Simulated scan of single mutants.
Amino acid sequence: MNKGPSWFNLTSITLGMAFLYLPIVLLVIYSFNAGRNVAIWEGWSVKWYFALWQDQQMLDAAWVTIRLGLLSASVATILGTMAAITLVRHGRFFGRSLFSGMVSAPLVLPEVILGLSMLLLFVSIGFDRGFWTMTIAHITFTMCYVAVVVQSRLVSFDRTLEEAALDLGCPPLRTFFSITLPLILPAVISGWMLAFTLSLDDLVIASFTTGPGATTLPIKIYSQVRLGVSPQINAICTIIIAVVALGAIVASLQLKRAETDRRRAEQMAAAGR
Rank of each mutant, 00 (worst) to 15 (best):
I221N: 00
T86P: 01
P5N: 06
S100P: 08
S104W: 07
Q232W: 01
P110D: 01
V150G: 02
C144S: 15
F127M: 15
D55S: 12
A51Y: 12
E42P: 12
A195N: 08
L168A: 14
L161A: 05
G4T: 05
S74R: 10
I219G: 00
I24M: 14
P23F: 04
V149S: 06
I139R: 02
K220W: 09
L71I: 15
M143P: 03
V108D: 05
A269R: 13
A271T: 14
W63N: 08
G272D: 07
S97C: 07
S45R: 07
T81H: 01
T65S: 15
L194P: 07
Y21W: 14
I29Q: 08
T140D: 00
E266W: 09
T142C: 15
L26F: 12
I24R: 06
V64G: 04
V123F: 00
F157S: 03
R129Y: 02
I219V: 14
A105K: 11
V188H: 01
A269L: 13
F19S: 15
V250A: 14
H138Q: 13
V108F: 10
V148W: 00
I184S: 05
I239G: 03
A147R: 05
A270S: 11
L68S: 05
A76D: 01
L173F: 10
V103G: 01
G4F: 03
L22M: 14
P171T: 08
A214T: 04
I24D: 03
L87S: 10
L154E: 03
T11F: 09
F196N: 04
D55K: 12
L253H: 09
A39V: 11
G91F: 02
G95R: 12
L121D: 01
R264K: 11
G228F: 00
V46F: 13
L161D: 02
G247I: 07
L181C: 08
S12E: 12
F196W: 14
H90G: 00
G16F: 10
S178G: 00
T209R: 03
E162H: 10
G126F: 05
R67M: 13
R36M: 10
V64Q: 11
Y145L: 14
L22E: 07
D201M: 07
A206F: 02
F94W: 12
W132M: 12
L116E: 01
A206Y: 04
W53M: 13
I239R: 13
G80H: 02
Q254H: 06
F177M: 08
T215D: 00
F127K: 14
M58W: 06
W48L: 04
Y49R: 06
M102N: 09
S152C: 00
A258T: 01
R36D: 10
A235D: 02
Q57F: 03
T142D: 04
A76P: 03
D158Q: 08
S12A: 15
D158T: 06
M118I: 02
F8V: 11
V204H: 04
G80F: 01
T77W: 00
S199G: 06
Y222D: 05
V38A: 03
W44K: 09
F99I: 15
Y145P: 06
I233E: 01
W132S: 06
A248F: 13
A18K: 12
T65I: 13
T160E: 07
K47I: 14
W7E: 00
S117H: 01
R257Y: 00
L109I: 15
